[in-house]
Design a protein around this nucleic acid. Structure first.
Lengths: 143, 143
DNA sequence: TGCATTTCCATACTTTAGTATGATGGAATT
DNA sequence: AATTCCATCATACTAAAGTATGGAAATGCA
């Protein structure tokens, strides 16, 4: 919930800072310490960089959808009623991690991971982690 | 070879065009037909758009490289010295089959499959079938 | 606050995976 | 004929994975 507003807030602050910078430059311009060409060049450069920055950040959210996320079927995940932990464990399993390694990484106990994997297998209707990986890839739950 | 220089040429031309546009605006400024604030705003806007455009184009070239490559690297298989049986077992493992199921499918005894998997893991330098799957996919030994 | 759900953890158990070592027989090489 | 490589199978063991059940803590919502 809170994370959703961070980019908006960030861009807002960024624009405010740039407005201030702009004001300073304008002030200097009026007192004649900078000439028009330099002023124009600086403004152009700053806003080009700003533009590149905005462009990259706009695409960074869409890029994963083109590369990897386009293959992930989030509706399937909901359809199978996989909760956060189960899906997280699924991803780590697909990366070749053992239950113990997953437990260490998530700061959880081994039995907890076993519970999650067991519930995961039930929901995926499989009986082993290798089957889970295979099915998850076919259903595009993971990439 | 030729494609490599298209972006450079393109950006060169683009910058040249923008330089001309800038000159026009500067000319208009000097004859007093445009106010400084408006001039600054226009320049800022144009270069912001330019920046966004550049940013988008910079990222668009990276996306397809990650996607399109889903071929098996047979040279890697030879490089790792995987023989027929080991590679066959690897494929079946990646399809989620247990050692017993693989043994049944290939009309072999369970210990035989265990030998193959064990040798396979040694050659792949992994310690479990899930790690083998993960590594094999990364090395493009399997799809 | 009370209740439901989720998440976490534990115990105990069975099954499967993985390691180590050695033996057998076939096929190709030298 | 001897050697090398591969594939097969066996035994015996340790380590992980997977199942079943139940309870405790945290979370979210009415």
């Amino acid at each position: 919930m809170k994370k959703k507003y961070i980019p908006i807030l960030f861009f807002g602050v960024l624009l405010a800072v740039l407005a201030i910078v702009l004001q300073v430059f304008e002030y200097r311009y009026y007192i004649g310490s900078l000439d028009t060409d330099i002023y124009t060049t600086v403004v152009a450069a700053i806003f080009t960089i700003l533009g590149i920055w905005i462009g990259i950040n706009l695409l960074k959210k869409k890029a994963p959808q083109i590369e990897g996320t386009s293959k992930i079927d989030h509706s399937k995940i909901k359809e199978l009623e996989l909760n956060e932990r189960e899906y997280e464990v699924l991803k780590l399993i697909s990366e070749g991690m053992s239950n113990q390694e997953i437990a260490d990484k998530l700061f959880l106990a081994l039995p907890t991971i076993k519970t999650h994997t067991s519930n995961l297998f039930t929901k995926l209707n499989v009986r082993s982690r290798t089957q889970a990986i295979h099915k998850a890839k076919n259903l595009r739950l993971i990439l």
